[in-house]
């Protein structure tokens, strides 16, 4: 399976989808979190909805996705996005609400406002927390994608797994499972870990390694 390139192709297919869905989640989730944190009006209106929907397992979006988008690529992306965007938004909101008020006052007295304030003070100050949210969002997105691909014939690792079951090929099933774990661990423990460490070190949130 690995040798005939099916595993590689399926992994590439899955990761391509994941990249699209996750990128959309990050680009939409972080600003949504900022809005929730900064506007009491929006918070009052949206927060209960966001928290409620967050409790919904992402695969439950699949029937709706198929109704709206048909058996298409978009339907799977929709499931991935719905599985991760809210987690990212909530983590971002928490991170921004937790920013040291002294930093906000310092920005105020220095006359830093508007876009410069949001991009130059608020987001960097909340970045360690936002990064944790992005990591969480990534693992949610990965799970949502696998669930979607299992139920939905569209290539990718999930389908390869399903395929192994149909062929009663336990070796293939376990091999694909190992690949899914490997990708999950690689991104979570390597990519995000390194990023988090670098940010925390720069922000002075870590002891210097001896």
């Amino acid at each position: 399976m690995a040798a005939d390139g099916r595993l590689g192709a399926a992994a590439a297919r899955s990761l391509g989808r994941l990249a699209q869905g996750y990128a959309f989640s990050a680009v939409a989730g972080v600003p949504l979190g900022v809005l929730l944190a900064r506007s009491a009006l929006l918070r009052g209106a949206l927060r209960p909805v966001v928290l409620g929907l967050q409790a919904l397992p992402s695969i439950c979006w699949l029937p709706l996705a198929i109704l709206w988008f048909g058996l298409s690529e978009t339907a799977i992306l929709f499931v991935v996005v719905m599985g991760s965007v809210l987690a990212i938004a909530i983590a971002t909101e928490d991170a921004i609400a937790g920013v040291d008020p002294l930093i906000l006052r310092a920005a105020g007295t220095l006359g830093i406002r508007g876009a410069r304030f949001h991009a130059g003070v608020l987001l960097p100050a909340a970045l360690p927390g936002i990064l944790t949210g992005l990591k969480l969002g990534w693992s949610f997105a990965w799970r949502a994608l696998m669930a979607g691909e299992l139920l939905f014939v569209a290539g990718g690792l999930g389908q390869l797994l399903q395929n192994g079951r149909e062929l009663l090929d336990a070796a293939q099933v376990m091999g694909v499972m190992a690949a899914i774990v490997a990708i999950g661990v690689a991104v979570d423990r390597v990519l995000f870990r390194i990023l988090e460490l670098r940010v925390r070190r720069r922000w002075g949130l870590l002891e210097e390694p001896a």
């Binding site: 002294l102 960097p124 100050a125 970045l127 720069r202």
Partner: peptide, 14 residues
């Protein structure tokens, strides 16, 4: 017109 120097060193840590 005014600038406050805080009791704590209010720098941007990053």
């Amino acid at each position: 017109d005014r600038l406050l120097v805080f009791q704590e060193p209010a720098l941007f840590p990053w």
